[in-house]
């Protein structure tokens, strides 16, 4: 039996070693858990996650504790003799009813959470999100602004099989796009989510949810972002070969800065559309533009 114990020592040493080897991952403890996030939904989901986690840890300590006690004290090698009881109605009722009560408590908290998530009414603005293989399209409804957003060029090079560009050298590898979504903070934004080809899912963990983008259907979700910043995510539903390569980047700005950005974007897109139309039917204006440049 000594042989066993040595094996346990060696293997547990090995695990400890592995845990140490992985130390860099501990540098940010936040990366072991859900982000606390920047919306009320994200905070609520974080809190629910922690509540249920602690409940399960508590139950785990009791159950595994009892098991451990039994495995230590009720060993044949320690001279234990087996009792022969095989049921006890009282205790069986107790360990059916107590978990049930705990579940009822959890269900109440969880129901409140869902109701909050589903409250998509009274939004200040609407953004339509459309999934494509393999990029996103964003439409600012009522503003006439829309654009596609796909994996940035550097990541796209580095992700090729046998690429000489190392992922570590790329800024936000696989979490960067050519044109990010820009939104205002402190504004209730309703996202209308759909897809053109296959099912995708739009997921920014800092917002606290993901939502499937399904062709032919429009799903609703909302976010009211509390702080300016850059929030990154990616497609979460298998959508074909390049599923891993359709990231999401959201830049949240103050409402003033957002308005400025939106105005510029309108001007730019208007100009681009004008140019497109112009290109479609050659006119003197094009010649002028060309000679000027």
């Amino acid at each position: 039996m000594k042989w066993d114990k040595r094996l346990v020592a060696v293997t547990s040493g090995l695990t400890g070693g592995l845990a140490l080897a992985a130390t860099p991952a501990w540098a940010g403890l936040g990366e072991l858990n859900l982000p606390y996030g920047v919306t009320s939904i994200a905070h609520m989901n974080y809190d629910l996650n922690m509540l249920v986690l602690w409940i399960t840890i508590f139950i785990g300590i009791i159950v595994f504790g009892a098991m451990g006690y039994s495995m230590y004290h009720h060993r044949k090698s320690q001279g234990a003799t087996a009792a022969q009881f095989h049921h006890n109605t009282t205790i069986e009722i107790v360990w059916t009813v107590i978990p049930l009560l705990i579940l009822v408590g959890m269900a109440i908290a969880a129901t409140r959470g869902l109701v909050l998530m589903y409250d998509t009414d009274n939004a200040d603005m609407d953004i339509k999100v459309t999934g494509y293989q393999w990029q996103w399209r964003y439409d600012y409804l009522g503003e006439g602004v829309s654009f596609y957003s796909k994996l940035d060029e550097q990541s796209n090079q580095a992700r090729e099989l046998g690429s000489s560009l190392q992922p570590e050298r790329v800024d936000n590898y696989l979490r960067n796009v050519d044109k990010p979504l820009v939104v205002p903070i402190n504004t209730k934004i309703r996202f209308l989510i759909t897809a053109e080809d296959v099912i995708h899912a739009w997921w920014v963990p800092e917002f606290g949810w993901k939502m499937d983008a399904i062709p032919g259907f429009v799903n609703k979700a909302w976010a009211k972002i509390e702080q300016p910043g850059v929030y990154r995510g990616q497609c979460a539903e298998l959508c074909g070969r390049d599923h891993a390569f359709m990231p999401i980047v959201v830049i949240a700005k103050t409402p003033e800065e957002y308005k400025k950005w939106l105005a510029e974007e309108k001007k730019r897109q208007g100009a681009a559309e004008g140019a497109e139309q112009a290109a479609a039917e050659p006119s003197p204006a094009v010649d002028v533009a060309q000679t000027q440049s």
Binding site: M44, L48, A110, G113, M117, A236
Partner: peptide, 10 residues
């Protein structure tokens, strides 16, 4: 817990 599953899912 359905609402948190919007984070865990997939």
């Amino acid at each position: 817990i359905a609402s948190v599953d919007f984070q865990y899912q997939d």
